[in-house]
């Protein structure tokens, strides 16, 4: 079954069309990367799926059910977003417990407080951190909280917007391992936006290369690792990544 199906998707900001005729199917359990430079429209695709960019035409279906242009609670529950910068995405005056409990309240999920505990354990956060504020946590711990928050309503799909680019290399490795383990344990589907090709190579099965709002190539990561890409732009990206010794 397809987890996310995007058909002839055009996305607009005001009168400007930022994504052109995008078609992409992501199978359940698959991990797909959207790659491209800034301004290529890759984050906008995630925004349209989650309902943060509402001005689009075409079709978006999550788990086989088409999403409307309005707030779609069913879609939100199945499809959660993790943002790039954990220093900006967590409310500074809410504790970890508040941040993790809020999705339950929004979706009306009854809970006795156990779920916060089990989710914290699943992302490797010590239970003692439950009533801390974000400023009392390190960058890696904050990103774990952001991932835990996304996992609270038990989604089937995680949308990841540059989940490690604000982190140190050593912390990045921990978060990447965590994402890989969560996907294996919970059978999650990932759609990840990144410009870091080595991360794609580690975490993804397929990648879609975007340029100026269009997908120029979709390739298996196995083929990508050998550098065997068809479009000139994708080859250029690969060469830039390889020359930096990544």
């Amino acid at each position: 079954m397809t987890a996310i199906s995007l058909r002839n998707l055009d996305i607009f900001y005001g009168a400007t069309k930022v994504v052109h005729d995008l078609t992409l199917d992501i199978a359940e359990g698959e991990s797909v990367a959207l790659v491209g430079e800034s301004g290529s429209g890759k984050s906008t695709v995630l925004k349209a799926i989650t309902g943060l960019a509402t001005n689009w035409t075409g079709a978006i279906a999550v788990e086989g059910v088409p999403r409307s242009h309005r707030i779609d609670r069913r879609c939100a529950r199945q499809c959660q977003l993790v943002f790039q910068d954990p220093y900006a995405s967590l409310h500074p005056r809410k504790t970890v417990d508040d941040a993790l409990s809020e999705p339950l309240a929004i979706h009306g999920i009854p809970d006795d407080g156990r779920r916060v505990e089990t989710t914290m354990a699943a992302v490797g956060l010590d239970a003692r951190l439950r009533f801390r504020f974000p400023h009392q946590l390190s960058g890696g711990q904050r990103q774990r909280v952001a991932i835990a928050r996304a996992l609270m309503p038990e989604p089937r799909i995680l949308l990841l917007d540059e989940p490690t680019s604000a982190l140190d290399v050593s912390v990045q490795a921990e978060i990447l391992n965590l994402l890989k383990r969560l996907r294996r344990e919970q059978g999650l589907t990932y759609l990840m936006v990144t410009h870091n090709l080595p991360v794609v190579s580690f975490l993804c099965d397929r990648l879609a290369v975007m340029q100026k709002g269009r997908i120029v190539e979709i390739a298996e990561v196995a083929r990508f690792k050998t550098g065997a890409l068809a479009s000139p732009y994708a080859r250029e990206l690969y060469a830039a990544g390889a020359s930096r010794g990544c």
Partner: peptide, 11 residues
Amino acid sequence: AMPHIDETRDE
């Protein structure tokens, strides 16, 4: 700890 462009490690 840095992933490579032709990464094969599982962890």
